[in-house]
Design a binder for these strands. Structure first.
Lengths: 148, 148
DNA sequence: CTAGGTGCAAAAGGTTTGCGGTTAA
DNA sequence: TTAACCGCAAACCTTTTGCACCTAG
Protein backbone atom coordinates (compact mmCIF):
# COMPACT_ATOMS: atom_id res chain seq x y z
CA UNK A 1 0.00 0.00 0.00
CA UNK A 2 3.07 2.20 0.32
CA UNK A 3 2.83 5.00 -2.22
CA UNK A 4 5.78 5.54 -4.52
CA UNK A 5 7.38 8.92 -4.07
CA UNK A 6 6.04 9.82 -7.46
CA UNK A 7 2.48 8.91 -6.68
CA UNK A 8 2.74 10.65 -3.34
CA UNK A 9 3.81 13.90 -4.95
CA UNK A 10 1.09 13.58 -7.54
CA UNK A 11 -1.46 13.11 -4.78
CA UNK A 12 -0.19 16.02 -2.68
CA UNK A 13 -0.12 18.29 -5.68
CA UNK A 14 -3.65 17.35 -6.70
CA UNK A 15 -4.96 17.88 -3.19
CA UNK A 16 -3.26 21.24 -2.76
CA UNK A 17 -4.52 22.34 -6.15
CA UNK A 18 -8.02 21.70 -4.86
CA UNK A 19 -7.40 23.44 -1.55
CA UNK A 20 -7.41 20.16 0.38
CA UNK A 21 -5.05 18.59 2.87
CA UNK A 22 -2.83 15.57 2.52
CA UNK A 23 -3.77 13.13 5.27
CA UNK A 24 -2.62 9.64 6.18
CA UNK A 25 -6.03 8.24 5.30
CA UNK A 26 -6.21 9.81 1.84
CA UNK A 27 -2.71 8.67 1.06
CA UNK A 28 -3.44 5.18 2.27
CA UNK A 29 -6.70 4.82 0.33
CA UNK A 30 -4.98 6.02 -2.82
CA UNK A 31 -2.24 3.47 -2.17
CA UNK A 32 -4.81 0.69 -1.88
CA UNK A 33 -6.22 1.60 -5.28
CA UNK A 34 -2.81 1.74 -6.91
CA UNK A 35 -1.67 -1.56 -5.42
CA UNK A 36 -4.42 -3.80 -6.73
CA UNK A 37 -6.10 -2.41 -9.80
CA UNK A 38 -9.14 -4.62 -9.92
CA UNK A 39 -11.89 -2.01 -9.55
CA UNK A 40 -12.76 -2.66 -5.92
CA UNK A 41 -15.99 -1.45 -4.33
CA UNK A 42 -15.87 0.93 -1.37
CA UNK A 43 -16.38 -2.05 0.92
CA UNK A 44 -13.45 -3.87 -0.61
CA UNK A 45 -11.26 -0.78 -0.36
CA UNK A 46 -12.31 -0.54 3.29
CA UNK A 47 -11.35 -4.15 3.95
CA UNK A 48 -7.95 -3.71 2.30
CA UNK A 49 -7.29 -0.35 3.94
CA UNK A 50 -8.00 -1.74 7.40
CA UNK A 51 -5.22 -4.28 7.10
CA UNK A 52 -2.53 -1.64 7.48
CA UNK A 53 -4.72 0.95 9.21
CA UNK A 54 -7.20 -0.86 11.45
CA UNK A 55 -8.69 2.32 12.84
CA UNK A 56 -9.93 3.69 9.51
CA UNK A 57 -13.71 3.81 9.19
CA UNK A 58 -15.96 3.02 6.26
CA UNK A 59 -17.23 6.60 6.25
CA UNK A 60 -13.69 7.88 5.95
CA UNK A 61 -13.03 5.50 3.08
CA UNK A 62 -16.11 6.89 1.33
CA UNK A 63 -14.96 10.43 2.05
CA UNK A 64 -11.44 9.78 0.81
CA UNK A 65 -12.70 8.11 -2.35
CA UNK A 66 -14.98 11.04 -3.05
CA UNK A 67 -12.10 13.44 -2.48
CA UNK A 68 -9.85 11.49 -4.84
CA UNK A 69 -12.58 11.46 -7.48
CA UNK A 70 -12.97 15.22 -7.13
CA UNK A 71 -9.23 15.64 -7.62
CA UNK A 72 -9.55 13.47 -10.74
CA UNK A 73 -6.99 11.01 -9.45
CA UNK A 74 -9.61 8.29 -9.30
CA UNK A 75 -12.56 7.26 -11.42
CA UNK A 76 -15.87 6.01 -10.06
CA UNK A 77 -17.60 3.37 -12.14
CA UNK A 78 -21.24 2.48 -11.94
CA UNK A 79 -22.83 -0.54 -13.48
CA UNK A 80 -26.60 -0.44 -13.13
CA UNK A 81 -27.22 0.19 -9.46
CA UNK A 82 -24.59 -2.13 -8.15
CA UNK A 83 -22.06 -0.78 -5.68
CA UNK A 84 -19.74 1.78 -7.23
CA UNK A 85 -16.26 0.63 -8.14
CA UNK A 86 -13.10 2.69 -8.08
CA UNK A 87 -9.93 2.76 -10.13
CA UNK A 88 -6.97 5.08 -10.50
CA UNK A 89 -7.53 7.46 -13.36
CA UNK A 90 -5.22 6.40 -16.15
CA UNK A 91 -6.83 8.53 -18.75
CA UNK A 92 -9.53 7.62 -21.20
CA UNK A 93 -10.66 4.06 -21.34
CA UNK A 94 -13.81 2.01 -21.65
CA UNK A 95 -14.87 -0.86 -19.40
CA UNK A 96 -15.92 -4.39 -20.08
CA UNK A 97 -17.99 -6.35 -17.59
CA UNK A 98 -17.55 -10.09 -17.83
CA UNK A 99 -20.98 -11.55 -17.17
CA UNK A 100 -19.46 -14.91 -16.30
CA UNK A 101 -17.19 -13.75 -13.49
CA UNK A 102 -18.30 -10.22 -12.63
CA UNK A 103 -14.80 -8.93 -13.29
CA UNK A 104 -14.33 -5.57 -14.93
CA UNK A 105 -11.61 -5.05 -17.52
CA UNK A 106 -10.19 -1.80 -18.80
CA UNK A 107 -10.33 -1.31 -22.54
CA UNK A 108 -7.78 1.04 -24.04
CA UNK A 109 -9.15 3.48 -26.57
CA UNK A 110 -7.39 4.79 -29.66
CA UNK A 111 -6.01 8.31 -29.86
CA UNK A 112 -8.63 10.94 -30.53
CA UNK A 113 -11.41 8.57 -29.65
CA UNK A 114 -13.36 11.31 -27.89
CA UNK A 115 -13.21 13.57 -30.91
CA UNK A 116 -14.42 10.80 -33.17
CA UNK A 117 -17.16 9.50 -30.94
CA UNK A 118 -18.64 12.93 -30.41
CA UNK A 119 -19.36 13.00 -34.13
CA UNK A 120 -22.55 11.11 -33.41
CA UNK A 121 -23.92 14.13 -31.57
CA UNK A 122 -26.26 16.48 -33.42
CA UNK A 123 -25.10 20.04 -33.91
CA UNK A 124 -25.14 22.15 -30.80
CA UNK A 125 -24.44 19.39 -28.30
CA UNK A 126 -21.23 20.05 -26.43
CA UNK A 127 -19.95 16.95 -24.69
CA UNK A 128 -17.56 17.35 -21.79
CA UNK A 129 -17.38 13.68 -20.94
CA UNK A 130 -18.43 10.36 -22.32
CA UNK A 131 -18.78 6.90 -20.88
CA UNK A 132 -18.55 3.72 -22.84
CA UNK A 133 -19.02 0.30 -21.37
CA UNK A 134 -19.58 -3.16 -22.69
CA UNK A 135 -20.92 -6.33 -21.16
CA UNK A 136 -20.59 -9.85 -22.41
CA UNK A 137 -17.99 -12.57 -22.20
CA UNK A 138 -14.29 -11.97 -21.71
CA UNK A 139 -11.64 -14.49 -22.73
CA UNK A 140 -11.58 -17.19 -20.08
CA UNK A 141 -7.84 -17.52 -19.79
CA UNK A 142 -7.12 -13.88 -19.10
CA UNK A 143 -4.57 -13.32 -16.36
CA UNK A 144 -5.72 -11.55 -13.24
CA UNK A 145 -3.61 -8.53 -13.87
CA UNK A 146 -5.45 -7.70 -17.04
CA UNK A 147 -8.27 -6.89 -14.74
CA UNK A 148 -6.91 -3.42 -14.35
CA UNK B 1 -52.20 7.14 -21.24
CA UNK B 2 -54.49 5.09 -23.44
CA UNK B 3 -52.44 2.60 -25.41
CA UNK B 4 -52.87 2.48 -29.15
CA UNK B 5 -54.20 -0.84 -30.39
CA UNK B 6 -50.80 -1.42 -31.90
CA UNK B 7 -48.89 -0.81 -28.72
CA UNK B 8 -51.38 -2.90 -26.79
CA UNK B 9 -50.87 -5.87 -29.07
CA UNK B 10 -47.14 -5.43 -28.92
CA UNK B 11 -47.30 -5.43 -25.13
CA UNK B 12 -49.56 -8.46 -24.91
CA UNK B 13 -47.42 -10.38 -27.33
CA UNK B 14 -44.23 -9.55 -25.46
CA UNK B 15 -45.77 -10.54 -22.15
CA UNK B 16 -47.17 -13.82 -23.46
CA UNK B 17 -43.83 -14.60 -25.06
CA UNK B 18 -42.28 -14.32 -21.64
CA UNK B 19 -44.99 -16.37 -19.97
CA UNK B 20 -46.46 -13.34 -18.21
CA UNK B 21 -49.96 -11.93 -17.92
CA UNK B 22 -51.40 -8.78 -19.37
CA UNK B 23 -52.76 -6.72 -16.51
CA UNK B 24 -54.34 -3.27 -16.25
CA UNK B 25 -51.36 -1.99 -14.29
CA UNK B 26 -48.74 -3.16 -16.76
CA UNK B 27 -50.72 -1.72 -19.63
CA UNK B 28 -51.15 1.57 -17.84
CA UNK B 29 -47.50 1.93 -16.86
CA UNK B 30 -46.45 1.20 -20.43
CA UNK B 31 -48.93 3.84 -21.59
CA UNK B 32 -47.42 6.39 -19.23
CA UNK B 33 -43.97 5.78 -20.72
CA UNK B 34 -45.24 6.04 -24.29
CA UNK B 35 -47.22 9.22 -23.64
CA UNK B 36 -44.43 11.42 -22.35
CA UNK B 37 -41.01 10.28 -23.46
CA UNK B 38 -38.87 12.31 -21.13
CA UNK B 39 -37.10 9.50 -19.27
CA UNK B 40 -39.06 9.68 -16.03
CA UNK B 41 -37.86 8.10 -12.79
CA UNK B 42 -39.94 5.41 -11.10
CA UNK B 43 -41.32 8.09 -8.78
CA UNK B 44 -42.37 10.24 -11.70
CA UNK B 45 -43.97 7.27 -13.44
CA UNK B 46 -45.80 6.55 -10.18
CA UNK B 47 -47.09 10.13 -9.95
CA UNK B 48 -48.31 10.08 -13.56
CA UNK B 49 -49.80 6.61 -13.29
CA UNK B 50 -51.79 7.54 -10.19
CA UNK B 51 -53.64 10.26 -12.04
CA UNK B 52 -55.71 7.77 -13.99
CA UNK B 53 -55.29 4.87 -11.58
CA UNK B 54 -55.18 6.25 -8.03
CA UNK B 55 -54.99 2.83 -6.41
CA UNK B 56 -51.73 1.78 -8.03
CA UNK B 57 -48.83 1.46 -5.62
CA UNK B 58 -45.20 2.45 -5.97
CA UNK B 59 -44.16 -1.18 -5.52
CA UNK B 60 -46.40 -2.20 -8.38
CA UNK B 61 -44.93 0.53 -10.56
CA UNK B 62 -41.47 -0.83 -9.79
CA UNK B 63 -42.68 -4.35 -10.53
CA UNK B 64 -44.31 -3.34 -13.80
CA UNK B 65 -41.25 -1.40 -14.92
CA UNK B 66 -39.04 -4.38 -14.16
CA UNK B 67 -41.37 -6.64 -16.09
CA UNK B 68 -41.36 -4.30 -19.08
CA UNK B 69 -37.58 -4.14 -18.98
CA UNK B 70 -37.41 -7.94 -18.94
CA UNK B 71 -39.70 -8.06 -21.97
CA UNK B 72 -37.36 -5.58 -23.66
CA UNK B 73 -40.16 -3.12 -24.26
CA UNK B 74 -38.52 -0.59 -21.97
CA UNK B 75 -34.95 0.47 -21.23
CA UNK B 76 -33.63 1.35 -17.80
CA UNK B 77 -31.03 4.12 -17.71
CA UNK B 78 -28.63 4.77 -14.89
CA UNK B 79 -26.54 7.86 -14.48
CA UNK B 80 -24.14 7.53 -11.60
CA UNK B 81 -26.25 6.44 -8.67
CA UNK B 82 -29.14 8.74 -9.33
CA UNK B 83 -32.61 7.23 -9.53
CA UNK B 84 -33.04 5.00 -12.57
CA UNK B 85 -34.91 6.45 -15.53
CA UNK B 86 -37.11 4.60 -17.96
CA UNK B 87 -37.89 4.95 -21.64
CA UNK B 88 -39.63 2.88 -24.28
CA UNK B 89 -37.10 0.80 -26.17
CA UNK B 90 -36.76 2.31 -29.62
CA UNK B 91 -33.67 0.38 -30.52
CA UNK B 92 -30.07 1.39 -30.17
CA UNK B 93 -29.31 4.89 -29.05
CA UNK B 94 -26.97 6.80 -26.80
CA UNK B 95 -27.94 9.33 -24.16
CA UNK B 96 -26.89 12.88 -23.48
CA UNK B 97 -27.27 14.42 -20.03
CA UNK B 98 -27.59 18.17 -20.07
CA UNK B 99 -25.72 19.37 -17.01
CA UNK B 100 -27.55 22.68 -17.07
CA UNK B 101 -31.08 21.31 -16.87
CA UNK B 102 -30.74 17.66 -15.91
CA UNK B 103 -32.70 16.63 -18.99
CA UNK B 104 -31.70 13.51 -20.87
CA UNK B 105 -31.77 13.44 -24.67
CA UNK B 106 -31.71 10.45 -26.95
CA UNK B 107 -28.94 10.38 -29.51
CA UNK B 108 -29.56 8.34 -32.62
CA UNK B 109 -26.69 6.15 -33.69
CA UNK B 110 -25.69 5.30 -37.23
CA UNK B 111 -26.35 1.89 -38.78
CA UNK B 112 -23.89 -0.79 -37.71
CA UNK B 113 -22.66 1.34 -34.84
CA UNK B 114 -22.41 -1.66 -32.55
CA UNK B 115 -20.26 -3.55 -35.03
CA UNK B 116 -17.94 -0.58 -35.42
CA UNK B 117 -17.65 0.30 -31.78
CA UNK B 118 -16.81 -3.24 -30.76
CA UNK B 119 -13.66 -2.91 -32.86
CA UNK B 120 -12.03 -1.26 -29.86
CA UNK B 121 -12.22 -4.55 -27.96
CA UNK B 122 -9.13 -6.77 -27.86
CA UNK B 123 -9.43 -10.19 -29.43
CA UNK B 124 -11.50 -12.66 -27.49
CA UNK B 125 -13.90 -10.18 -25.92
CA UNK B 126 -17.45 -10.91 -26.97
CA UNK B 127 -19.74 -7.95 -26.30
CA UNK B 128 -23.44 -8.60 -26.01
CA UNK B 129 -24.35 -5.04 -25.14
CA UNK B 130 -22.80 -1.63 -24.99
CA UNK B 131 -23.73 1.62 -23.31
CA UNK B 132 -22.68 5.02 -24.48
CA UNK B 133 -23.53 8.22 -22.72
CA UNK B 134 -22.39 11.79 -22.84
CA UNK B 135 -22.67 14.66 -20.46
CA UNK B 136 -22.20 18.33 -21.15
CA UNK B 137 -24.30 21.12 -22.53
CA UNK B 138 -27.23 20.67 -24.86
CA UNK B 139 -28.50 23.40 -27.18
CA UNK B 140 -30.53 25.78 -25.05
CA UNK B 141 -33.39 26.27 -27.46
CA UNK B 142 -34.22 22.61 -27.90
CA UNK B 143 -37.93 21.85 -27.92
CA UNK B 144 -39.26 19.68 -25.13
CA UNK B 145 -40.14 16.86 -27.44
CA UNK B 146 -36.56 16.32 -28.44
CA UNK B 147 -36.19 15.12 -24.91
CA UNK B 148 -37.30 11.70 -26.00
C1' DC C 1 -59.74 -23.20 -9.53
C1' DT C 2 -54.97 -21.43 -8.99
C1' DA C 3 -50.63 -19.53 -10.35
C1' DG C 4 -49.34 -15.21 -10.79
C1' DG C 5 -50.06 -10.20 -9.70
C1' DT C 6 -51.20 -6.34 -6.62
C1' DG C 7 -50.89 -3.25 -2.53
C1' DC C 8 -49.14 -2.25 1.81
C1' DA C 9 -45.68 -1.70 5.06
C1' DA C 10 -41.46 -2.90 6.53
C1' DA C 11 -36.60 -4.12 5.35
C1' DA C 12 -32.52 -3.95 2.71
C1' DG C 13 -28.37 -1.97 1.09
C1' DG C 14 -25.22 1.47 -0.47
C1' DT C 15 -24.09 6.01 0.69
C1' DT C 16 -24.25 10.41 3.31
C1' DT C 17 -24.39 13.26 7.38
C1' DG C 18 -24.25 15.39 12.19
C1' DC C 19 -21.40 15.76 15.83
C1' DG C 20 -17.63 15.63 19.20
C1' DG C 21 -12.88 14.96 19.19
C1' DT C 22 -8.33 15.18 16.37
C1' DT C 23 -4.80 16.91 13.25
C1' DA C 24 -2.30 19.20 9.44
C1' DA C 25 -0.61 23.64 8.13
C1' DT D 1 -4.21 28.33 16.48
C1' DT D 2 -7.94 26.75 13.77
C1' DA D 3 -10.16 25.20 9.70
C1' DA D 4 -10.27 20.90 7.87
C1' DC D 5 -10.62 16.07 8.78
C1' DC D 6 -11.67 11.66 11.16
C1' DG D 7 -14.60 8.01 13.39
C1' DC D 8 -18.88 6.64 14.97
C1' DA D 9 -23.63 5.94 14.67
C1' DA D 10 -27.71 7.31 12.91
C1' DA D 11 -30.16 8.94 8.88
C1' DC D 12 -31.20 8.83 3.95
C1' DC D 13 -33.18 7.30 -0.27
C1' DT D 14 -34.04 4.21 -3.84
C1' DT D 15 -35.35 -0.28 -4.45
C1' DT D 16 -36.81 -4.93 -2.89
C1' DT D 17 -39.49 -8.22 -0.21
C1' DG D 18 -42.98 -10.84 2.74
C1' DC D 19 -47.54 -11.51 3.08
C1' DA D 20 -52.59 -11.40 2.57
C1' DC D 21 -55.82 -10.50 -0.86
C1' DC D 22 -57.23 -10.49 -5.67
C1' DT D 23 -57.72 -11.74 -10.62
C1' DA D 24 -56.70 -13.38 -15.31
C1' DG D 25 -56.73 -17.55 -17.86
Amino acid sequence: MKLSTNAKHELEEALVTNGLRATRQREHVYGVLLTQRDHPTADEVYARAKQAMPSISLATVYNCLETLVECELVKKLNYEREPSRFCPNDGEHAHFLDEATGRVFDIDLPENFMREITNVLPQGFEAKKFKLSFSGYAPKDLAGDHCV
